[in-house]
Design a protein around this nucleic acid. Structure first.
Lengths: 220, 220
DNA sequence: GATTGGCAAATTGTCGACAATTTCATTATA
DNA sequence: TATAATGAAATTGTCGACAATTTGCCAATC
């Protein structure tokens, strides 16, 4: 996630970011119990800051907590993945619709150029997509919606969870083929200020990528 | 909110619920600074539990926090309301679609009966809607989606914020007229297992109620 | 041998104190 | 007078210790 920089100011921030990274990237596997004392010695901070970090992770749905028992890293299930993509479909569909209304011309231009650059790589036979490129595309549209609450929701919550799934299912660097064209069409709808179409295309795009993951998941 | 009972087990839970109530119901007005020491003496708990409660409120978007400065109750704006209803439209639209797929017949029956009961009140000239009835309707459909993450998102986050707006704008007990018919049609679509239509109707229903609020808001 | 009861160890929840940072009034300077 | 520097007061951030609860083990009982 190199686009939207969150800057850590307090010790809790750092601990939260670090813990989230380790969990999302799979260094701390699913289902593991997060012991407050253990983590506080590991990170060399007090239990209070670890506690605060864990609370924040709970709010992001990255860990589950039971009172007086403790927190565990969520175990990802096929149903959970389905649920997550249903939410993404709704929210990112709306984001695309709003982006068609609100995204400044200059930003649409930039987004279009980004895709063109990526198309060069496709022509050269390099595989489209790098995950980073895909994330960048989605993120720009979310920001283009200019709905601050939506932006926060998606970039704080949903995206880390989605990546967690991809990492744990071993599918970093997803489907290579059709995504590029889908992105192109979405941008065109946004450029035409056709919110209705932009939403439909984005929803379909997310459905496809959900199916793509679900197929791989069923082979395991 | 009498439907979905959250039960407080720890002292932090109680403080969180109490604080949220006081803020949402307007006893602690918008923009007010939440002093940790002040609240800890008021509620007779330690600063740590107040801190934890405030952190949770921040995760719900009920307060805003700046590091080393403190937390303030969010000030609701017309733009914020618009943003919130855009999100509700997306998420509850999806919930209605999923409810059409997943809601058990018995639950649909109950929901339908609920509306019939409320219709009796309408016939007797009593104003439809009590806010509670409206909330109950929406909540049942959300639960009917059987998407756990969606349920959590909407009932923890969005709904309290939405109520906060209504209270602060002095519109408890909203539009009386058309909402009943809209609810009827949505339930019918769900009963017919027509997710496509259920989503469209729910989205329109939320758009109407947004407009209804926006009008009142513009008169202030 | 299986089940229940209770004790000890470990873990989370809560607390008060200290450290770091911000805020605000006061003073000094241009 | 306006602006900047200074320092004290207040507030948040962090810490270690104690209290409350859960967990796991061991013995007692059937």
């Amino acid at each position: 996630m190199s686009f939207f920089q969150e800057q850590a100011v307090t010790s809790s921030d750092k601990t939260f970011f670090r813990l989230r990274e380790e969990i999302v990237e799979g260094e701390i596997p699913a289902g593991v119990k997060l012991s407050e004392v253990e983590l506080s010695t590991k990170y060399e901070v007090s239990r209070a800051v670890v506690r605060e970090a864990i609370n924040r992770l709970e709010a992001c749905n990255i860990v589950e907590r039971k009172a007086n028992v403790g927190a565990r890293v969520v175990t990802l299930t096929a149903e959970g993945l389905l649920e997550l993509y249903q939410i993404r479909e709704a929210l990112e569909g709306m984001a695309a619709r709003l982006a068609a209304q609100n995204m400044p011309e200059t930003e649409i231009e930039k987004l279009s150029n980004l895709l063109d650059d990526q198309f060069e790589l496709v022509k050269q036979g390099q595989s489209y997509y790098q995950e980073a490129g895909d994330l960048d595309f989605h993120y720009r549209i979310i920001v283009g919606s200019q709905n601050q609450q939506l932006i926060t929701m998606l970039s704080n919550g949903i995206y880390h969870l989605a990546r967690m799934y991809r990492v744990q299912l071993g599918m970093t660097g997803p489907r290579v083929t059709t995504a590029y064209d889908e992105h192109k069409h979405i941008v065109k709808a946004i450029a035409n200020r056709d919110g209705e179409l932009a939403e439909i295309l984005m929803r379909r795009h997310i459905q496809y990528s959900k199916n793509n993951i679900a197929v791989k998941l069923s082979k395991m």
